[in-house]
Amino acid sequence: MNRLEATRIVVHAARDAPIVASLGHPAYDLFAAGDRPQNFYTWGSMGVASSIGLGVALAKPESRVFVVDGDGALLMNLGSLATIGLLQPPNLVVVVMDNGEYATTGGQATPTAHGADLEAAARAMRLDAATARTEADLQALVEAPPPGVGRPSTGRQPLLIVAKVTESRPTAKPPLDCVYIKQRFMAAIGNPEAAAPVVERR
């Protein structure tokens, strides 16, 4: 499975739910796989996508929240797994597109290419975790099966899926306007920024 194919599966499973994408190829492929207002494309802040997704998941407990991360990016912010494990948001699904390389910067190998195991790291931090090597695996993991079906454990824990993917050359890029991305996203998830109340000054 290449990353674009894997991303299409995540978009399909998310339905109307928000998806936060890490910068570079993961964000480019999210745009190509299915641009939608509920996509939050980052253009920087490498490593922080799972933290943004955690914040959205805490603010919107009624909604599933997806993160499309990269292996190199998650390795920059492994502490995020400890925080997610501490808070246990059951609605958060982090999908790590693990191609074993820093593809956006020229294909340098990441530690996962040499055996670093992000699924084991996530389990150690008390997330539910699994590795998908085929499209069918990934589909089964992201499609919100009932507890105990197609999931390693209860379905009441945050979930991290390591999607073992091959690199695929991105074909499109999301809009460059960061504020547009934000405002479209906030409106789409039921929180239009324009309607934010002004706090009284005393």
């Binding site: 939050f40 943004i52 914040g55 959205v56 998941a57 805490l58 603010a59 919107k60 998830i189």
Partner: peptide, 8 residues
């Protein structure tokens, strides 16, 4: 940032 996006 995520909390703000979610309305907090």
């Amino acid at each position: 940032a995520g909390l703000y996006l979610g309305g907090r």
